[in-house]
Simulated scan of single mutants.
Amino acid sequence: MKIVVVGGYGVFGSRLAELLLRDGHSVWVAGRSLEKAQELTNVIGGHPLEVDVRATPDKVLQPRPDVVIDATGPFKGNQDSAYHLPRLCLAAAVDYLDLSDNADFTSGISILDEAARKQGRRLLSGASSVPGLSSIVAAELCRGYDEILLIDIAILPGNRAPRGAAVIASIVGQMGTLSPVWRGGVWRKQRIWTDAKRVSLDQGLTRTGYLIEVPDIRLFPKFFQARSVVFRAGMELGLLNMALRSLGWVRRTWPFDVSPQCVRLMQWCANCLLRFGSDRGGMSVTVVGARELLSVSVIGD
Rank of each mutant, 00 (worst) to 15 (best):
K2E: 09
I3L: 01
V5P: 13
V6P: 01
V6S: 09
G13D: 02
L16Q: 03
E18K: 11
L20P: 00
R22L: 09
S26D: 11
G31Q: 00
G31S: 03
E35K: 15
L40G: 00
T41N: 10
V43I: 09
G45T: 10
P48D: 06
L49C: 01
L49M: 13
L49S: 04
V51I: 05
D58Q: 15
D58A: 12
K59L: 13
L61S: 14
P65N: 09
P65Q: 05
V68M: 08
P74L: 03
N78W: 11
D80M: 14
D80R: 15
A82C: 09
L85V: 11
L85D: 02
R87L: 08
L88R: 10
A92H: 08
V94R: 05
L97W: 04
D98W: 00
D101P: 00
D104Q: 13
S107K: 04
A115H: 08
A115M: 06
A116Y: 03
K118G: 05
R121E: 09
S125K: 00
A127L: 05
G132Y: 12
A139G: 09
L141M: 04
G144Q: 10
E147L: 15
L150S: 10
L150D: 07
I151S: 01
I151M: 07
D152P: 03
I153C: 03
A154N: 07
I155K: 07
G164L: 10
G176I: 02
P180A: 11
P180C: 06
V181P: 05
V181T: 11
G185R: 09
V186I: 13
R188L: 03
K189E: 12
Q190P: 02
D195N: 13
V199W: 00
D202V: 12
Q203I: 11
T206E: 06
T206S: 13
T208I: 02
G209E: 01
V214M: 04
P215A: 11
L219C: 06
F220C: 01
R227E: 11
L237C: 04
A243M: 15
L247Q: 04
V250Y: 14
R251Q: 14
T253E: 06
T253K: 14
F256R: 08
Q261S: 14
C262H: 07
V263S: 12
R264A: 15
L265Q: 15
L265I: 15
A270P: 06
C272F: 07
L274V: 12
F276G: 12
F276H: 12
G282M: 03
T286D: 01
V288H: 00
S295M: 08
V296F: 12
V298T: 11
I299P: 03
G300H: 05
